[in-house]
């Protein structure tokens, strides 16, 4: 079964499955313990190392299990965890398990341009105003028209001394927005990289003076980024390309890492994201097999009632026109051949003396004959005429 086409072969919207996009990706931490080695942490000893790779490695595959930061003795206590996802994903949730008391404040950021710029997805703090200058989400008024980064309570300490950050990406989004129909929401959930900024360590009982608890270290594992490989509804899976980059297995005449554009010959209408109801497949230009390239013309598309805007380029086999659907000057349609036949257009072959020009009727192939000349190519004198010696008037009335 092909998720991108129905039983009849018609295209339909399709999406890759929900995965942990961070799994196996290289996690980067701005601070990791073990250099220089201490009694508890030695980066050069696998049995005592706590590298950032433990954040995104399969559960239970390593021992120890948790990444750990260096001991932080004085402010600022910021430590950044970054996971490049390799390509754009549409996020559903982000979670992070803390192996020690979770921080009192942290920020969750995303990048849509492979780490060049960052935007917040959410903040988590026991003191939203103090840490991030914004009101707690619960105390905030009605949601705005679009998604925004809200400030949620910091993760609670669990009985085992750890804690869990669990964030649903649509938590910052007003209810009722639908991913299929809301470009704003599509943009909100799209990320190529995820970053967690651990801002302030927890202090038992309060969130005030953290320096009294120093040195402090953060420790975490299982950074999960739940999402779907972003293919804009035109692929049901993502694969590694020849260069080892994750890319959509595009269908519907689309191409690109996210199926974000139409393939070169598939430009009869503008690219569109597929929805659950409509595949919006890119359509091949109609060139009757006489052109390999085409371009999109918006004006023609509008004039056609938004049905067809492709213009064939470099029509071959002596054809011409927007769809290579008629014969170029000096050629006419052979009625015995299909329009898609390589020899659908025959040369006019107008007689150099008997014809008044070289261009024949494109339908009948009739050349324009001089007076008294007849025949499809004007190569004979008409009845009642005979050949003269003058090439200007090749046929004269028979005396």
């Amino acid at each position: 079964a092909d998720p991108c086409h129905d039983e009849g072969g018609a295209p339909r919207g399709c999406v890759p499955g929900l995965v942990n996009a961070a799994l196996g990706r290289e996690a980067l931490a701005s601070s990791t313990c073990g250099r220089p080695a201490t009694r508890a942490c030695d980066a050069s000893d696998p049995r005592r190392a706590h590298p950032a790779a433990l954040l995104t490695s399969p559960a239970g595959s390593a021992s120890p299990l948790c990444w750990r930061s260096d001991a932080l003795t004085q402010a600022p206590f910021n430590v950044t965890l970054t996971v490049p996802l390799g390509k754009a994903f549409e996020l559903v949730f982000v979670s992070l398990r803390f192996c020690s008391a979770p921080p009192a404040s942290l920020a969750l950021l995303k990048s849509q341009d492979h780490g060049r710029s960052w935007a917040p997805l959410g903040f988590f703090s026991s003191h939203c105003g103090l840490d991030y200058g914004r009101p707690p989400a619960a105390a905030r008024g009605p949601a705005g028209p679009g998604p925004e980064a809200l400030c949620f309570p910091a993760p609670q300490v669990q009985p085992d001394g750890g804690g869990l950050l669990a964030f649903s990406v649509q938590d910052g989004s007003p209810a009722g927005l639908d991913l299929d129909s809301s470009p704003v929401l599509q943009d909100w959930v799209t990320a190529t990289d995820i970053r967690v900024v651990l801002t302030r360590p927890a202090r038992p009982g309060d969130a005030g003076d953290v320096e009294s608890t120093a040195p402090y270290s953060y420790s975490a594992t299982e950074l999960q980024v739940g999402g779907r490989c972003k293919c804009n509804g035109h692929a049901s899976r993502c694969l590694l390309d020849a260069q080892g980059r994750l890319t959509c297995d595009c269908r519907h005449g689309t191409e690109g890492p996210d199926c974000g554009r139409c393939k070169p010959f598939y430009c009869d209408r503008p690219w569109q994201r597929a929805t659950a109801r409509e595949a919006h497949a890119c359509l091949a230009c109609s060139c009757n097999g006489h052109a390999r390239r085409c371009r999109f013309n918006m004006e023609l598309y509008r004039l056609s009632g938004r049905r067809s805007g492709g213009v064939c380029l470099n029509c071959r086999h002596n054809t011409a026109g927007r769809h290579c659907h008629y014969c170029r000057e000096g050629f006419y349609r052979d009625p015995g051949r299909a329009l898609s036949d390589r020899r659908a257009c025959r040369a006019c072959d107008c007689h150099p003396v008997g014809a008044a020009g070289k261009t024949c009727n494109q339908t009948t192939g009739q050349c324009p004959c001089k007076d008294g000349v007849a025949g499809l190519t004007c190569n004979r004198c008409a009845p009642g005429f005979q050949q003269s010696r003058s090439p200007v008037a090749p046929c004269v009335k028979t005396p």
Partner: peptide, 23 residues
């Protein structure tokens, strides 16, 4: 009646050298 095709050899190109088709 099928007329014979024009015979190029019969034309006199003396005054129309510039119109003469290349063979």
């Amino acid at each position: 009646e099928v007329m014979p095709t024009l015979d190029m050899a019969l034309f006199d190109w003396t005054d129309y050298e510039d119109l003469k088709p290349e063979v």
